[in-house]
């Protein structure tokens, strides 16, 4: 197991090098660059740069170097955990990500938690009532939910309950109301929760439907095992058989897929943050893509890649921990 772990962790290095090189070249070789963006002036009323100024800027950002040298330098800084400074506001990329990550993490975290809390009972009930009306109703609902694009759901939810022509129960966008700074602690928290309800719902139902479908299959498999029949034959109450014996075995695969849900949730968060105007990682990504802020784009790439890779690794480890039958040499 230790050898396996060391091997897996060592393998993360070439993978990370691969994805960062890919993104680095893509970002760098794409037509246009930050100097052109800033130099164009226009929208924000600033005057256009002279050719010399533009040249100086290209030199300043190292855009004149050959891309592989630039990549090597970037990697060199990365080994010292230095992601560089943003080209837009010259603040450290780590700090910029740091102030955004909390919101995205709480969004994705609550979505994951709620998904599990709802999905497992749904899946278990559907499995127990296999083939009956309850099962069919749950399975069909989950199937429909699975097929609804999150942005369409978000728009319709806003329309229906957040200030549209119909109900006005919840705020439409943002993380807090305008007067949040004047609120007391609990009032502020309540305000924040109200703002998060719709984004979390939109982010949750997709994972929820996936996990509950998975939970149902997993539970059905567990119920078909020999030891369940033995437990029933022993005369154990059905409740105990299901909760104690079957569910415990069914949980193993269900829990391990959480790692695979991470990248899905991150993708989902990008859209949801954009719709609800939430200043998270997704919005930062959009902003830096638009401004051609290469260090920030690369920083987010590194961050998301490491997170995803660790998720996969964690899933594999969990698999061994919860199921002693599986052994990696």
């Amino acid at each position: 197991m230790t050898t396996y772990l060391i091997r897996r962790i060592l393998l993360l290095v070439p993978t990370l090098l691969g994805i960062t090189l890919l993104t680095f070249l893509l970002v760098r070789e794409a037509p246009g660059n930050i100097a052109l963006m800033k130099g164009a002036g226009g929208e924000n009323g600033s005057r256009a740069m002279t050719a010399e100024q533009r040249e100086a800027m290209i030199k300043l950002y190292g855009l004149d170097k050959d891309p592989f040298t630039a990549y090597a330098e970037w990697i060199g800084r990365l080994t010292r955990l230095d992601l560089g400074d943003s080209w837009v506001d010259h603040r450290s990329v780590v700090a910029k990500i740091g102030e955004r990550i909390g919101l995205t993490a709480s969004l994705a975290g609550s979505a994951l938690l709620i998904s599990y809390l709802v999905a497992i009972p749904l899946g278990v009930i559907a499995a127990i009532k296999r083939g009956q009306v309850t099962d069919r109703a749950i399975s069909f609902t989950v199937f429909v939910l699975y097929s609804i694009p999150s942005f369409a759901a978000a728009l319709l939810l806003i329309l229906l309950v957040a200030g549209g022509d119909y109900l006005n129960l919840l705020p439409m966008y943002g993380t807090n109301s305008i007067n949040a700074s004047e609120m007391g602690r609990f009032e502020w928290l309540w305000d924040r929760i109200q703002h998060m309800i719709l984004p979390v719902i939109c982010l949750t139902y997709g994972s929820l439907s996936y996990i509950s479908r998975y939970a149902r299959v997993s539970m059905l498999e567990a119920l078909a095992q020999d030891f369940i029949r033995t437990a029933r034959a022993k005369g154990l109450p059905e409740r105990l058989v299901i909760l104690h014996h079957a569910l415990r075995n069914a949980l193993i695969p269900i829990i391990t897929i959480f790692a695979l849900e991470l990248p899905v949730l991150i993708s989902g968060a990008v859209i949801i943050e954009e719709i609800f105007s939430l200043p998270g990682m997704g919005q930062l990504m959009f902003a830096s893509l638009e401004a051609r802020d290469n260090p920030t784009i690369m920083g987010i790439t590194v961050f998301v890649s490491i997170l995803t890779l660790l998720g996969y690794l964690l899933a594999d480890i969990l698999y061994v921990v919860v199921d002693p039958r599986i052994r990696y040499e």
């Binding site: 393998l11 993978t15 990370l16 691969g18 994805i19 890919l22 993104t23 893509l26 970002v27 794409a30 037509p31 246009g32 990248p263 899905v264 991150i266 993708s267 990008v270 859209i271 990504m285 959009f286 893509l289 638009e290 051609r292 784009i297 790439t301 998301v304 890649s305 995803t308 890779l309 996969y312």
Partner: peptide, 18 residues
Amino acid sequence: EIMDCFPPLLLILVAVSL
């Protein structure tokens, strides 16, 4: 593995927006 460690939507966003 390299392709997989980056959510497709983000990768596509990078490629498309650039």
